[in-house]
Design a protein around this nucleic acid. Structure first.
Lengths: 217, 217
DNA sequence: AAATTTAATGAACATTATTAATTATTTTTA
DNA sequence: TAAAAATAATTAATAATGTTCATTAAATTT
């Protein structure tokens, strides 16, 4: 009796795992399709029929795995952050730790969004709606630049003997300035050319990061 | 013959004016309706049928006066800026000219968008699309805070004998930081409470404006 | 092998922007 | 002033898209 009971549990557990694995697989297909379309055609031409076609299923199938299309799309945030982080790591590879590296990371972070406007829209513009992981997702986005530069700030803190709150202020300022600049450039084409935009980026970011050396203790 | 010819021209001109006046009236009705709905229900429930109903016409009539709904909506930008400017002027009325007034104007500017989220969306989020006045409209938005504070910066320049480029840098930084903060707060609920948001605003804006006194010549 | 559960789908519905065809109104002309 | 012409307003139809639901197909269990 005991044996049979245990056996049933094991079987149930295995089945559960299989089911979950299967579910994760299906979610993965749809997410992969979504990411490809986002990076390719962009948000304009992204719709449930497109996504499903790219994934090789019917659009109705999508709703067996996601509450709605917003949930699916926002589940891609984490993947894009990983991809972005990888690109940045590679880009700033040779630069020695210090303020210059923080600048480079921040500029590469901005460059990523310029390269993939739909990812910018996903991160900053799209309304979160009623997705389950609303606050965690928002937080993930808000803290992204902080996480990208955390290690380097730690280095600078020791190197220049900086105050914790000075660092916090600089980090916050960087986060807000980058978001604001991207917003104007991506949504309002201000400045009107990428050259000017790149120059403006240099001015703003250099100013913020260079300021920390002045505030050395 | 000459007389008749002139008469025809005059008649044509008069008719033209009447027609233009009529057209402006109709546009005004639709714009008024749009502004009311935007400030009330918000962008979510804004659609051509709503607008037309509020204006007292059919939704199809709208298309006799505007290329599309985007053109109509973006034509409201100027009016909202006037309204916002008026509110700010009244709010900072008692404050004497100087850095403190620049801070107050900038904070009132942000408060306006918090009060009317749809206006924020219209200014910063909505895609411009193919509207005729694309660049002028974008420029109007980009330079708004500059124009609101221009007079006060002029005052500070004389008072503190500031460099023109220092002012330009501070203005740009204010513009970007405010946009970024609003973007995170309105679209990503970061910080999660208005109290925290207001504190963050104070920290950022005060830091930028106070910096100019340090840079006195 | 039959019964049952699970997954996938096509058809239908709802919302919304836009266009085209039609009707109503106003203006012009003879 | 009455017919003709031009203008304005509206209704009906179209297209795109997200979502739901009843049904079919597949698999798993008994």
């Amino acid at each position: 009796m005991f044996i049979k009971f245990s056996w049933l549990i094991i079987k149930a557990t295995l089945k559960m795992n299989n089911k979950e694995i299967q579910e994760q697989l299906m979610k993965g297909y749809f997410m992969q399709a979504t990411k490809e379309l986002l990076k390719g055609e962009g948000l304009k031409s992204l719709n449930v029929r497109n996504i499903a076609q790219q994934a090789g299923y019917s659009f109705a199938t999508l709703y067996n795995y996601f509450k709605d299309v917003k949930e699916l799309v926002f589940l891609c945030v984490e993947d894009f952050q990983k991809e972005c982080a990888a690109e940045i790591t590679q880009k700033v590879n040779g630069i020695p730790s210090g303020p210059e590296k923080i600048k480079a990371i921040t500029k590469a972070y901005m460059a990523y969004f310029v390269q993939y406007p739909s990812v910018f829209n996903l991160f900053f513009i799209e309304k979160l709606g009623d997705i389950g992981q609303k606050q965690p997702t928002a937080n993930l986005i808000f803290t992204f630049l902080d996480r990208l530069t955390a290690e380097e700030w730690g280095f600078c803190r020791k190197e220049f003997n900086l105050q914790e709150n000075e660092i916090a202020k600089a980090k916050a300022e960087l986060n807000y300035v980058t978001a604001g600049m991207l917003l104007f450039y991506m949504n309002r084409i201000q400045p009107v050319s990428y050259i000017e935009f790149a120059q403006a980026i240099d001015i703003q970011i250099d100013a913020i990061v260079d300021r920390i050396e002045i505030n050395k203790v």
